[in-house]
């Protein structure tokens, strides 16, 4: 690892970042640099192939006749079968777009909720000196230490009393109430990495906490916010259990629940269609990650610290 670090440092792909170590890198002999660069890329490409394999296999399986799926772990396709996509799309009680749309709603609400509520709570924990801060922090962490399986029944009873079963409120509302301690803690760590001088400077200028939070912290923590948004998106998109329990009306089903309803262990199921729809349901998450990761690059290094 250190070996790689001692060698090259290319200019950052993001504009505006100086390439401070170019002089250092230039000291290495070009031939050696090239060899190490080739090695590095070869290593990365091998790792990437291992990472890509399951996705490629899923795509291959969605194009195979059902009888070939369980006998081939390779990627080679003997006979192409494109039917799984149209059949899978219409196989369930509603077209698959219904489930995609439902999942989008839940995910969108969750992302917005987490971003607002967790960043607020994180600001308080990282920057404010208030009474019971330590205690509150401990309470926040303890709250995520119980497994969902013993909480789900009391939660169901609670939401049922409120008449919220078969709405997305049990899935979305908790996010607006900062119940995802993971993201609060994540943002706390990021805020603590931002030099205090910045907000103290603003405070001298007479800015209140609301302004410091809104105008200084939020722009500076874009990478943390992007991380939280991307993770919330992916985790909510893939979350099966709570979506299964709190939503029982088929027209409100989300993607993970819909995908499971292709399969029945006791009889024959259309696995090809399930694979096809699994591939379809991966497209949004992959796009979100591809698009969202641009924001991971922004940070104090590019916007502040001057």
């Amino acid at each position: 690892m250190t070996d790689a670090l001692t060698t090259t440092r290319r200019p950052e792909p993001t504009p505006g970042i100086p390439a401070p170590n170019r002089s250092l890198a230039a000291r290495g002999r070009p031939a050696r640099r090239r060899i190490i660069s080739v090695l590095k890329h070869t290593g990365l490409i091998i790792i990437c192939l291992l990472m890509l394999y399951p996705l490629l296999w899923m795509i291959a399986s969605s194009l195979r006749p059902n009888s070939d799926i369980f006998t081939s772990s390779g990627l080679f396709i003997d006979t192409f079968d494109f039917d799984h996509y149209p059949t899978g799309w219409d196989a369930l009680a509603y077209p698959f777009s219904t489930y995609l749309l439902n999942s989008f709603l839940v995910v969108l609400g969750s992302v917005i909720g987490n971003l607002i509520s967790c960043s607020m709570a994180a600001y308080a924990f990282a920057r404010l000196r208030f009474r019971f801060r330590g205690l509150a922090f401990v309470a926040m962490l303890i709250a995520i230490m119980l497994p969902i399986h013993v909480l789900i029944i009391p939660q169901y009873v609670f939401y049922a009393q409120l008449g919220w079963i078969n709405t997305y409120l049990p899935l979305i509302l908790p996010k607006f109430l900062a119940t995802d301690a993971f993201f609060i803690f994540l943002m706390v760590q990021f805020i603590r990495g931002i030099p205090r001088e910045l907000d103290e400077a603003a405070r001298i200028d007479g800015a209140g906490h609301a302004r410091i939070y809104g105008q200084i912290m939020l722009p500076l923590m874009v990478p943390a916010l992007a991380t939280a948004a991307i993770f919330t998106f992916i985790w909510t998109w893939n979350d099966f259990f709570t979506q299964l329990i709190f939503v029982t009306k088929p027209d409100l089903y989300t993607v993970p629940v819909a995908l499971r309803s292709f399969i029945d262990a006791q009889t024959t199921s259309d696995f090809g269609a399930m694979f096809a729809m699994s591939v379809v349901s991966l497209i949004p998450v992959f796009l979100v990650f591809l698009f969202g990761q641009r924001f991971l690059l922004r940070g104090i290094a590019t916007t502040g610290g001057k």
């Binding site: 099966f240 299964l244 329990i245 029982t248 629940v257 309803s261 029945d264 006791q266």
Partner: peptide, 12 residues
């Protein structure tokens, strides 16, 4: 209607 796969069914 209400339906799901076998394991999810009994949990729910």
């Amino acid at each position: 209607a209400q339906y799901s796969d076998w394991t999810g069914y009994w949990d729910r």
